[in-house]
Design a protein around this nucleic acid. Structure first.
Length: 289
DNA sequence: GCCCAGGATGACG
DNA sequence: CGTCATCATGGG
């Protein structure tokens, strides 16, 4: 590792590499011997952090600063969402977690793959897609396949990457993107609500996936994805709606997200990520067998 | 062997 | 418009 960034010690620019890459927003990173190995864009990156020293290789400093959003005033963002004891505790625990700037198409397909699944399985799907259909990179590994590469796959091809019933969704979405390469720019140009509706036109993308894509690939920080963990937390600790554990209705999703934007402000998405990071495995009975 | 997971879809009242 | 079964798959 030849390159390095020295973080300004003190307050202004907190950065926690482990929290950032371990919180489940990106699926192509792994930590071995204190060093994170991963692929972003067409870069095969190694990166590690020792206090204020970040060492890396595989990409230049400009790319690293942009991907990890090191240009943002995180201290300012965190103080803006620090509105109650619970989010305060999450901030204390995960301070330095940053929302990445990920590739739109990769994020789109990744969150189609994420529905009704858990993180290890999602990682496996993404790894298989990249390994089989992505361009090989110097030094090993593969870039995430582009839209035309995935559009050339059959549904069975994708099923064999353990996508299950999501295979036709990913196929059709890839074809739509390949036929309309401007899709991401269109999303960028639209206000939040319209951008979300455009994303939800892709098969396999509903409200939650659309919010994840807006948050992680388009820097729409008002997006507040509500998955089962966030729903449980919000109901229990913010909304006092103890009750039925049934499926979440569209109305409940909107109510939770609207409350969050009201409560946390225009950077509610950052609050979501900090809360998700400290999610408690409180399913009551935690495993047996 | 069950229940659960960064849910979305289509059918049906 | 609201509700509901269904959809593959691996991990606890």
């Amino acid at each position: 590792m030849e390159q390095s960034i020295v973080l300004e010690s003190g307050s202004g620019a907190p950065f926690d590499l482990d929290a950032t890459l371990g919180c489940g927003q990106a699926f192509r990173w792994e930590k071995r011997d204190g060093t994170w190995h991963g692929i972003a864009g067409r870069h095969r990156i190694r990166i590690r952090q020792d206090n204020d020293l970040v060492r890396f290789d595989g990409a230049d400093e400009t790319f690293i600063r942009r991907y990890f959003a090191l240009d943002l005033d995180l201290a300012g963002i965190l103080s803006s969402i620090d509105r109650d004891p619970r989010i305060h505790a999450a901030i204390e625990r995960c301070r330095g977690l940053r929302i990445l700037r990920q590739e739109p198409f990769e994020t789109l397909i990744s969150y189609i793959c994420s529905t009704n699944a858990n993180i290890p399985v999602i990682k496996k799907r993404i790894a298989l897609l990249a390994e089989r259909y992505g361009d090989p990179l110097p030094g090993g590994g593969h870039a995430f396949p582009d839209a035309s590469a995935l559009a050339g796959c059959t549904e069975d091809d994708l099923r064999s990457c353990v996508l299950g019933y999501r295979a036709p969704y990913a196929c059709a979405t890839a074809a739509m993107c390949a036929n309309n390469p401007e899709w991401a720019e269109r999303v960028t140009a639209l206000p939040y609500s319209d951008a979300k509706n455009v994303l939800m036109e892709f098969p396999g993308v509903g409200p939650k996936a659309a919010d994840c894509i807006l948050l992680f690939a388009f820097q729409r920080y008002e997006a507040f994805p509500v998955d089962v963990h966030i729903r449980r937390m919000m109901r229990r600790h913010y909304l006092n709606t103890a009750g039925g554990d049934g499926p979440m209705t569209c109305r409940e999703y909107e109510a939770i997200a609207a409350f969050a934007r009201e409560h946390f402000g225009p950077h509610a998405g950052w609050a979501q990520e900090y809360l998700f990071c400290v999610r408690e495995d409180d399913r009551g009975d935690s495993g047996r067998g």
